[in-house]
C-alpha cells in the first residue's frame, strides 16, 4: 500500500509531460482551419440559390415550348380559386417571362463579376 502511494507520487512528479506554452493556440488554429468560414457558408447558400433559380427558369422555358396553354388543367385550379382562365394564362406567361429575366440577370451579374475580378 505504501509502495503504491510512493509510486503514485513518483509518477505524478516525474511521468507527467507538460504541454508547450502555445499548445492550446495550435489546437484552436487547427480547429479554425477545418471550420468553414461564415463568409464561405453565405457564398455557398447564394450559389445554391442561384443554381436552383437557374434550374427552375430552364425547366420553365423548356416546358413552355411543349405545353399548350389551352391544355393546362385550369378547371382544377378554378375549383379552388375564382380566377378566370384568361388571367391564369397571363399569369403563366408572366411567370415564364419573370424567370427568363431572372436567368438573364444572373447571367449578366456573373459576367460583370468576372470582369470586375479581372479588373482587380
Amino acid at each position: 500500500m505504501e509502495d503504491d502511494k510512493n509510486l503514485r507520487k513518483l509518477l505524478s512528479e516525474g511521468a507527467m509531460v507538460k504541454a508547450s506554452a502555445d499548445f492550446t493556440n495550435k489546437v484552436m488554429a487547427g480547429i479554425s482551419e477545418i471550420q468553414p468560414s461564415p463568409l464561405f457558408e453565405t457564398e455557398k447558400w447564394k450559389r445554391i440559390f442561384k443554381t436552383m433559380a437557374a434550374l427552375v427558369a430552364a425547366v420553365a422555358i423548356i416546358l413552355s415550348f411543349f405545353i399548350n396553354p389551352n391544355s393546362l388543367p385550369y378547371s382544377l385550379i378554378e375549383k379552388f380559386s375564382k380566377i378566370p382562365a384568361a388571367y391564369l394564362t397571363i399569369l403563366t406567361e408572366y411567370l415564364v417571362a419573370f424567370w427568363i429575366l431572372i436567368a438573364l440577370s444572373l447571367y449578366m451579374n456573373k459576367g460583370s463579376n468576372t470582369t470586375s475580378a479581372i479588373g482587380n
Binding site: A15, M16, V17, K18, A19, F23, T24, V27, M28
Partner: peptide
C-alpha cells in the same frame, strides 16, 4: 483543451 492537455500529452 487547456484543462486536459497535459494528461492527453502524457
Amino acid at each position: 483543451a487547456t484543462a486536459y492537455q497535459n494528461m492527453a500529452i502524457t
